[in-house]
Design a protein around this nucleic acid. Structure first.
Lengths: 195, 195
DNA sequence: CCTTCCATCATACGATCGTTTGAATCAAAC
DNA sequence: GTTTGATTCAAACGATCGTATGATGGAAGG
């Protein structure tokens, strides 16, 4: 086994267990057992359990931000609100597994430092570019209210994924929820300013 | 000190610490220390740490569902979408402290059994009555898409509270966010069915 | 005074936690 | 064949966890 194999299997196991049981609810021993690795492997490859979490989060965030940026560049210079919503929210449904949404929601709800030191510049860049694009499409909307609405997009997408994942029996197809979300959010973004 | 005093102070301390550090991140010792009680007080008054969580959640949920029900009964027989959104989402801003939103989001993201056995019939009753009211106001919307949208209301309200609470420096006034939410969500609920 | 019952107390139990350590293993370089 | 450096291994460390136990306090009822 090449050294990268153990590293990758640790990332896979940790991603799954952190999403299922949370950071504090997952022991290093559970991760190394699932990965088929030795207990000390986490310390050797990542330094600590917290740094393993950072590596996991960076890995799951990256394809999402990449798809969001690619979707924005695919649009013309004067995209509609609906197109912007689709490009911004679509990858949250397509590029993200349901348990990954749960992991992100859990991190979002945890104010401790170890859960926040992973934040890179990638999602800030995505956020700023979409904010500019929405601001051009909604020139009358104040910046603060626009930012409130963009957080609303993230909230609806993430919470829907997690909540459908919480229902044990239903098959939970992603596709209708994705289209409902675009309808719902495009209408919401198009609302006139509160004023 | 009357016996109920220790019980109440345990509930207060647990509510605060569970919201700040999560269920697994909060030790029984931290709760009893903050409450000025003995370590064994949790076991004596509640049986276990998990049952203490249930008691905390029931206590914070109750005024919210009560306000939602009262708001619905205050409306006429043919309320507008905006009135329904206001009555449903308003208490999530008014009756809920920001750290309580965090506690709820954390519980929402945790699929473990101990986090879910508190669910009572109160919020189910609220959910069903608002669902019926929205269905009357939106007769063309399929039931499944309506339920998706109602979860969107909860998502926007909860995530906004937590996210504004995450920002350390700003004063984070609730009032503009509350009005922005009603604008945003009323437009979203009023969207035609996806079809 | 004595009993009863509720509440609180100090203390300890077994388990599990994250991390560290030093030896063992192994392929590649020389 | 020997050295070297990276990787994996079993084992142990101190700390902290949730819970249980039996003693103690103290007011109410007889």
């Amino acid at each position: 086994m090449a050294p990268l194999d153990t590293r990758t299997q640790l990332l896979d196991a940790a991603e799954r267990l952190f999403a299922e049981r949370g950071f504090r609810g997952t022991s290093v021993r559970a991760i190394t057992d699932l990965a088929g690795a030795n207990l000390a492997a986490v310390g050797y490859h990542f330094g600590s359990k917290a740094e393993l979490l950072s590596a996991v989060v960076r890995r799951v965030i990256e394809p999402i931000t990449a798809a969001q940026l690619a979707g924005l560049e695919r649009l013309g210079s004067e995209p509609t609100i609906s197109e912007l919503v689709e490009a911004f929210a679509g990858p949250l449904f397509d590029e993200m597994r349901a348990d990954t949404s749960r992991l992100i929601v859990r991190i979002f709800g945890d104010p401790s430092e170890e859960m926040r030191d992973w934040t890179g510049s990638a999602e800030e860049q995505v956020r700023d570019r979409y904010r500019a694009a929405f601001a051009r499409a909604l020139p009358d909307l104040p910046a603060e209210e626009l930012w409130f609405r963009m957080r609303g997009i993230l909230a609806v997408a993430a919470v829907d994924r997690v909540d459908r994942h919480n229902q044990p029996c239903t098959p939970n197809p992603t596709e209708p929820a994705r289209r409902w979300a675009v309808t719902f959010l495009a209408a919401a973004m198009s609302a006139p300013p509160t004023g």
